[in-house]
């Protein structure tokens, strides 16, 4: 099993623990990854509001690179996943648009047919890899751990770009995986809401209110930690949780884990190798509960 790997900017930037953790678990799972050193940023939806054509062209370029290798494309970020899927959706529903984009790619010797389906690691594990193959590798099930799923907007909406109709199981994929790893799912209202990261530098008060609302809701329902497939959500929910807590005038202290980290823990990989010491919210109490040591 092999994929063209698109790690995105944040897994090597603001959340430098994500990239090695994802690579490590893929290696253990026997998923081969081929990187694309010339692939550019997806634009995170930000660039698209100024110049959609530029953003879509860069994403078509990345997908064309995967296509040239004859490989499927793996993402590890809800935002990359959604932004690429949306670009795909626009190109597929407008052949003249795709042609225009291709005319700009020709100079680099690339051509995109529109046929690549970017897939988040979360979906790959359930749809392509299979939980039956994952289960035997779960040597340290996360029993007793109460985990709240937090998806990130881009991997759940808009559904028509994300192939949710053909794959309704994607809507509960995070819960499915958490349960498969032996942990208890803490369902809560905020799980598909916005983390507030996109407006962090624009309206910090609102952004912090969102962080505070979702993390305290999960905490009050008894969650030991929150799990997210999106490093941008992680930046806000983890990195800014102390600030959100002081704005909300209450303690929160809810560790936020990246998806590959919970998989790694369940496979017996050490918390250190998975970068858990790099989080802002202390993960030690969680590891003590799990008996995995700090």
């Amino acid at each position: 099993m092999k994929y063209a790997f698109y790690p995105g900017c944040v897994s090597r930037g603001g959340c430098p623990e994500l990239y090695p953790a994802a690579k490590l678990i893929c290696q253990r799972l026997g998923i081969e990854l081929e990187e694309m050193p010339a692939a550019a940023c997806c634009g995170a939806g930000v660039m698209q509001e100024k110049n959609q054509l530029f953003g879509d062209t860069l994403n078509a370029r990345t997908m064309a690179m995967a296509e040239k290798k004859g490989l499927g494309l793996m993402t590890i970020c809800s935002t990359c996943q959604g932004v690429m899927a949306q670009a795909n959706h626009r190109m597929k529903s407008d052949s003249a648009y795709l042609e225009k984009i291709n005319s700009n790619l020709a100079e680099e010797g690339l051509h995109y047919s529109g046929g690549v389906q970017p897939k988040h690691l979360l979906w790959i594990l359930i749809e392509d890899y299979g939980l039956d193959k994952l289960m035997p590798l779960v040597t340290k099930p996360l029993r007793g751990l109460r985990l709240a799923p937090f998806y990130g907007c881009y991997i759940v909406r808009p559904t028509e770009a994300l192939g949710i109709e053909e794959h309704p199981e994607r809507q509960t994929s995070l819960e499915t995986l958490i349960a498969a790893l032996g942990a208890t799912v803490i369902d809560f209202e905020g799980k598909t809401r916005c983390c507030g990261f996109p407006i962090l530098t624009i309206n910090e008060k609102n952004s912090m209110a969102m962080v505070g609302k979702h993390t305290s809701e999960a905490k009050d329902l008894g969650a030991d930690a929150m799990v997210t497939p999106c490093p941008l959500c992680h930046l806000n929910l983890d990195g800014y949780q102390p600030k959100a807590a002081s704005q909300a005038h209450r303690p929160i202290g809810l560790p936020i884990l990246h998806l590959p980290q919970i998989i790694g823990l369940a496979m017996g990989i050490s918390p250190k190798e998975l970068g858990l010491q790099r989080h802002i919210v202390n993960t030690k109490p969680l590891l003590v509960k799990l008996g995995a040591g700090g």
Partner: peptide
């Protein structure tokens, strides 16, 4: 306009 988080809830 700049206060929108681009969460997509309204599109959905």
């Amino acid at each position: 306009m700049w206060d929108c988080t681009r969460c997509g809830e309204c599109v959905q």
